[in-house]
Design a protein around this nucleic acid. Structure first.
Lengths: 231, 231
DNA sequence: CCGCTGAGTTGACATACATCAACCCCGCTT
DNA sequence: AAGCGGGGTTGATGTATGTCAACTCAGCGG
């Protein structure tokens, strides 16, 4: 399990540093669909690197149904938002069978001490995460359902592409209702919008299998000089 | 300028460590209303600690009007979302006359190396920031204008309280339109909602002066087991 | 084979909020 | 003092999207 241990974190390490890093990485752990990797409020101890499968993060708030706040794909790091806090911010549960590597945070912190390259990498992960949240803020703020969904799909596409999968055909491991919650919509709207996109020839969906036909057009919808709240 | 140099970062440092920390903190710099502290896309070099006054962060996106993504009050740290990146994510401009202390990031990084307490503090700032974004995500996602505004005001109130100001009477340094952009609404809605809250006796507003009368009730509105998208 | 359950689709209807527009008020400049 | 502009308020109207409800379909256990 040495080499491609952790696409996001281990890049740019010297060979021996990589070995050291690898030493603290725990053996991959399997999870089944629906199993929880972290639970809201439980003590925070480790980051996790997704090796295969996918996860959603949800936060429970009193009197509301759970809100989906993130999806994690292979290669991505779970738990960054808990660094520096005592307990976990949200639940993280597997959307399908999955493997993760555990990265006990105290160990990582010790390691970071002597490895500027790894520290830089950690910072980069953190800021990437923050910027992703910020982009999400912008997305949720005053954009139409069409724009949200188009952006979401393009984002997924991009993430698949960057880990070497086809950006044009992929499997949605989350339900319509997860997507809706994530995008601040209701599932019916997601369903309808998807149907309309298909009808317009931009993509085709069958259940959870997605094929993007017109990446360009989808991008145009995402950016659309908004019908809503125009400047 | 030794002691309360930086409420958020310097807490928990030993006395001599504090002195070291203080050494890299630049002399306070004044800004006038409307002046930019950071500009989107420019190289990232420093964090800033707000000493007095307040700021907004905005991001410009093609074909849309600027989106307000954050407000910064005294004691808060600007630029955390740029750590580990080469360039600034957004513009940060003063909402009124203000002072900031500059904290050159390379210096800080060097200092963090030898000071576990400071490192912990930095992590805490980062995760606090992330959680704040996450909460904001939840807020923007499927909540009514009433809930958003109530949450926003309570959030402000809390921030004022934690820095020793009255949580019940304070000045809104941002325009209605800034608030609207931040909350994903239009300014008319902010204005109307504020008016209704006042009419209901929960608060009173006159221009930018705000007085919260019924903190309790405001909290109830914020949490309201939503009229919209009920579970 | 049957019934069940959960996910997804589709339609009819309701409503919160955006849009457009008129107006006020206050501070500034001339 | 008059004119002006930016920020704020208020009203009338339109629409995107939430809500409710009926239906289909696939998978699963008995």
């Amino acid at each position: 399990m040495l080499f491609p241990a952790c696409p996001l974190l281990a890049l740019g390490l010297e060979f021996d540093a990589l070995a050291t890093f690898d030493a603290i990485l725990q053996r991959p752990r399997p999870l089944k669909r629906g199993q929880a990797l972290m639970r809201q409020g439980e003590p925070f101890e480790s980051l996790f690197v997704v090796r295969s499968g996918s996860f959603k993060q949800t936060v429970a708030e009193p009197g509301r149904r759970d809100q989906v706040t993130h999806f994690y794909l292979p290669g991505e790091v779970v738990g960054l938002d808990d660094i520096g806090e005592a307990s976990c911010f949200g639940n993280v549960v597997a959307l399908e069978s999955a493997f993760v590597c555990e990265l006990p945070f105290p160990h990582l912190e010790g390691l970071v001490e002597g490895l500027p390259a790894l520290r830089g990498e950690l910072y980069r992960c953190l800021s990437r995460e923050m910027r992703r949240d910020q982009r999400m803020l912008c997305l949720l703020s005053g954009r139409t359902a069409d724009q949200r969904l188009a952006s979401f799909l393009l984002g997924l596409s991009e993430r698949f592409r960057s880990r070497g999968c086809s950006p044009y055909r992929f499997h949605l491991s989350m339900s319509r209702s997860d997507i809706a919650s994530y995008l601040g919509l209701v599932l019916e709207t997601v369903s309808r919008t998807l149907a309309r996109f298909q009808q317009q020839g931009m993509l085709s969906v069958s259940g959870r299998e997605l094929a993007i036909h017109d990446h360009e057009a989808l991008g145009a919808v995402a950016l659309a000089s908004a019908p809503m709240m125009t400047a």
